[in-house]
C-alpha cells in the first residue's frame, strides 16, 4: 500500500472510532502512524523473532 492508502485506511478507522472532528485534529499523528507502519513492514522478521 502507498502512504496515501495507509493514511486513508487509518483516517476512516479514526472517523469510525473517534468521530470526524477528532479524526481531522489527529491528522498529523495519523500521518506519523502511517509512516511508522510502512517502515515496520519494510523489514523481514524471522520465526524466532517472538513478540
Amino acid at each position: 500500500m502507498s502512504d496515501d492508502q495507509i493514511i486513508e485506511v487509518l483516517s476512516e478507522r479514526a472517523v469510525q472510532k473517534l468521530g470526524r472532528q477528532r479524526a481531522e485534529k489527529l491528522r498529523p499523528e495519523i500521518e506519523q502512524l502511517a509512516a511508522d507502519l510502512k517502515e515496520l513492514y519494510s523489514v523481514p522478521v524471522e520465526l524466532d523473532d517472538e513478540p
Partner: peptide, 18 residues
C-alpha cells in the same frame, strides 16, 4: 491513546517482533 486505538493486533505483534 487515540492513535493506539487505530492499530490492529497484527501491527502490534509486528512491532514486537521487529
Amino acid at each position: 491513546i487515540e492513535t493506539g486505538m487505530l492499530l490492529e493486533a497484527s501491527d502490534y505483534i509486528r512491532a514486537r517482533r521487529v
